[in-house]
Each structure stands twice: as structure tokens, then as C-alpha cells.
Amino acid sequence: MADHQAVEKQTLPPNPEKATLDGRNKYLGFWFFLGGETVLFGSLFGTYLGLRGGVVDGPGPADLFHLDLVFIMTMILLTSSLTSVFAVINMKRGNYKGLLMWMWATVALGIAFLGFEIYEFYEYYHAGLGFTTSAFASSFYTLVGTHGAHVAFGVAWITVLLIRYRNTGLTLTNAPKFNTAVLYWHFIDVVWVFIFTVVYLLGIGG
């Protein structure tokens, strides 16, 4: 009964990312990882909120933050979330070119976001907010920097996937990989929602 022929043509299933057991495992495991990441960022948010009054002699949130810059960064990241959604829709449609294109768009937006963040940190540093200046400074850089590191890792990860699979077509192996990368990217966006609200808006407003 064990016929050894591999099926030549794989037909497109409705959810290619969850068509194999490997894919389902990856999907579930990655979600659980994100559940853990929630606590990880929760700890960082808590630390920041506990220490944000500890300004000492250095500049405080209201002296530093600019609403316009944060608004642009937020829009960039939100849009990158939408492009990655479109990538997944194209994947389910079997439109591999579309998947690649939207993923590249996501990467581009991610790099733009990182650029703004580096500029932002540079500005703050020159405004007198070093990493060791105050407890506020340390906790701010740690929270926003950890988020930035996540963005950087996401950019690198998706780029590797895009180069590796530039002309393989959609397969049962790479569909789950793209899908988990997109989940990760959305999660980065979720974290940013809290960062712009809790760190920047509350920093300026109250």
C-alpha cells in the first residue's frame, strides 16, 4: 500500500499555511510564543510606567516627545500591517507574485519605521537623554528599543524568506513560514499601539 510516488502537482488548499501538520504546529506554536511575548512586553511596560517619574536632572517625556514624528511612525507601521494582510490574502489566492510584492512593501515600511526610530533616538540623545541619564531614560530606551529590535528582526526575517523563496512558487513549506512572519509583524504593530498610547501620548498629555 505504500506507493512511493510523490504527487506531482500539489493543488492549492484553501489555507495553505495550515494544510500540513507541520504548518498547523508552527501556527499554533507561534501564537503561543506571542502569548509569552505579551508578558515580556507587559513587564517592560510596567517597568517604564513604574519609573517614568524618575527623571532626576535629565529631560522628561514632555520635553522630548513630538506628536508629529510619532504620528508618522504610527501610520507607517499601521500601513505595513495592512500590506502584510494583503500578502496573506494573495497567498490564499495562489497569487505568489502578489504575496512577494506585498511582503517587500512591508519590509520597506519596516525599514522606514526603523529609520525614524534611529533618528528619534539620535535627537533625544542630543537633547541630553543618554541611556544612563535617569531611570526614566533607561526604561524608555529599553521598552522602545526592545520593540525596535523586534522590528529589525522582523525585517531581517522577512527579507531572508523573500530572497530564499524568490522563485520557488508557493509551497506547503513556505506558506506557513510567510504566515508566521506576518503574525509576528502584526504583533509588533499591536505592541506599538500601546507604546504610542502609553509612552508618547500619556507622556505628552499627562
Binding site: 510596567g46 517597568t47 513604574g50 519609573l51 517619574g53 524618575g54 527623571v55 532626576v56 541611556f131 544612563t132 541619564t133 535617569s134 531611570a135 526614566f136 531614560a137 533607561s138 526604561s139 529599553t142
Partner: peptide
């Protein structure tokens, strides 16, 4: 040299 736990820099050891 971060200062989360350094009280003289506004840190807090209970964290």
C-alpha cells in the same frame, strides 16, 4: 550602567 534599580537616578529596587 542602566539605572532602573539605582535610587539616586530615580530607580526603584522593588521592580
Amino acid at each position: 550602567g542602566a539605572t532602573y534599580f539605582a535610587v539616586d537616578f530615580g530607580g526603584n529596587v522593588i521592580i
